[in-house]
Nucleic acid binder design. Structure first.
Lengths: 211, 211
DNA sequence: ACCTGAACACCGTTCAAGT
DNA sequence: ACCTGAACACCGTTCAAGT
C-alpha cells in the first residue's frame, strides 16, 4: 500500500543513492514499483515532496543540549546537531537548506536558537542578527562539506600532480597541502569557536549596558 | 554569428530573467534564434556552459582594496566585493558558488584572500582555516540574500497576519518584526565585523607567538 | 568549420478511464 | 479512494546530413 511516508522515504533513499539532481517522480515511482501517477494521490507535486523530504530530515535532528548548561555550550551543541544532517543525509543537505519551511520542523531549531541567545542576554534584534550569522556560517560550512561548494583544493583528487602555476598563484601553490586536506569536523569547530567566543564578548557588553 | 561569448551572455540573461532552474540549452538557443544543436559547436555540454557562466560572473568582481591598507580593511573590502555578485547577478549566485572552478577566475579571489591573511601574520594552516570560515559565512549570507535559503520570517510576505502559534513558538512570534525585516547589507556587515574582529585578536596572538 | 533536424531517452503534470 | 496509461510540453545529447 502506497503512502506519503513511503514516498518520502523512497525519495530520500534515491537522493542519497543517486544525488538530488537525479531524483524524479518517475524514478521514485520505479523505486516503489508503482506507476508515476500513483504518487500524485499522496503528494500534490514534486515541490511539495521535496518540502516533505526537508521536513523529515530536519525532524530527525537530535538536539541534546542541556537546558541547564551555559548558553555558549548550548549554541555549540545546537550547531553540531545541525551539522549531523551533513553526516546522515549528505546529498539531501542542499534540499534541506534550500526549502523555505514554515512548519514545526522548520521553525523549531530557530525557536531553540533564539531562546538560547535571549538567555545570553541579547535583545530581540541582536538575537536575530546573531542567529543569522550562525545560520549563514553553518549553511556555508555544510555545503562545503557535502561538496556543493568548492574546497579550493588546487588539484583534483584524481590527478596526481599539482596543476596550478606557482607564478600566477604563489599562495595557492604554497599552501596546496593545507588546501587539499579538509577535516570537515575540525574546520567546522574552528569557525564555530571563533563565532561563539566573539558572541560571548558581545553578550557581556549587552549585559553591561542593561546593568 | 554564434560564439561562446554570445552563448554565455545569453545564458546569464536567461538565468537572471527566469531563474537558474528554468535555464535550458533549448531555451538559450531560442533566445539566440538558433537551433539547439548549434550551441554544441561552441560549448561541449550544459555543465561546461554553467562553468563558463560562473567564470564570467566571477571575473567581473571588482576588487578595489588598497594593497597598502590595513589587512582588516582589505578583508572587509574583499568580502564586500564578493557580495556584489548577489547584487549584480542574484539568480546566478547559486550557480557561481556551486561550480568547482580551477581556472584563473576561480582561484584569483582565493589567492588574494590568502595573501591578505598571510600579511595578517597567520601561518599557512591558520590562513586556510580563516579563509574557509570567511567563505562559509559569505556563501551562507549570499544564499540567504538571493532567496535560496530561508530568512525564517514567520509569515509569508503575501499573507497579512502572522500565522505562527505563539504558544508553540514564543520566540519566533515575539521577534517576528525583527525576523521579517532583513536589510541584507546591514546583516552582512554585522557578521563580517564580528569575524574581522575575532580574526584580529587571533592575528595578534599569532604575531606574539612568532616573536 | 559551422549549422541543423530527427531521434532517443528522459522530465513533470493533466486528464480521462478504470477499480 | 486509490491506481493507472496515454498524452502533452518539455529536457540534454548523439548522430547523420547538410553547407
Amino acid at each position: 500500500m502506497l503512502s506519503r511516508d513511503r514516498i518520502v522515504t523512497a525519495a530520500i533513499a534515491v537522493i542519497e543513492r543517486e544525488g538530488a539532481d537525479a531524483v524524479s517522480m518517475r524514478r521514485i515511482a520505479a523505486e516503489l514499483g508503482v506507476g508515476v501517477m500513483s504518487l500524485y494521490n499522496h503528494v500534490p507535486n514534486k515541490s511539495a515532496l521535496l518540502d516533505a523530504v526537508a521536513e523529515t530530515v530536519l525532524s530527525q535532528i537530535e538536539f541534546t543540549d542541556d537546558p541547564a548548561a551555559h548558553w555558549t555550550q548550548r549554541v555549540r551543541m545546537q550547531a553540531r546537531a545541525f551539522r549531523q544532517i551533513a553526516h546522515h543525509y549528505p546529498r539531501c543537505t542542499m534540499v534541506v537548506v534550500s526549502r523555505q519551511l514554515r512548519s514545526t520542523a522548520g521553525l523549531l531549531p530557530v525557536e531553540r536558537a533564539l531562546a538560547t541567545l535571549r538567555d545570553a542576554g541579547f535583545d530581540g534584534r541582536e538575537a536575530v542578527q546573531m542567529l543569522r550569522v550562525f545560520i549563514a556560517y553553518i549553511v556555508g560550512s555544510l555545503l562545503r562539506e557535502v561538496g556543493v561548494t568548492p574546497t579550493f583544493a588546487p588539484v583534483r583528487p584524481d590527478i596526481a600532480v599539482a596543476e596550478v602555476d606557482p607564478a600566477l598563484f604563489p599562495m595557492v601553490s604554497a599552501f596546496a597541502p593545507d588546501l587539499m586536506a579538509c577535516d570537515h569536523e575540525e574546520e567546522f569547530d574552528f569557525g564555530l569557536e571563533l563565532l561563539v567566543q566573539t558572541m560571548a564578548v558581545r553578550a557581556e557588553q549587552a549585559a553591561g549596558r542593561e546593568g
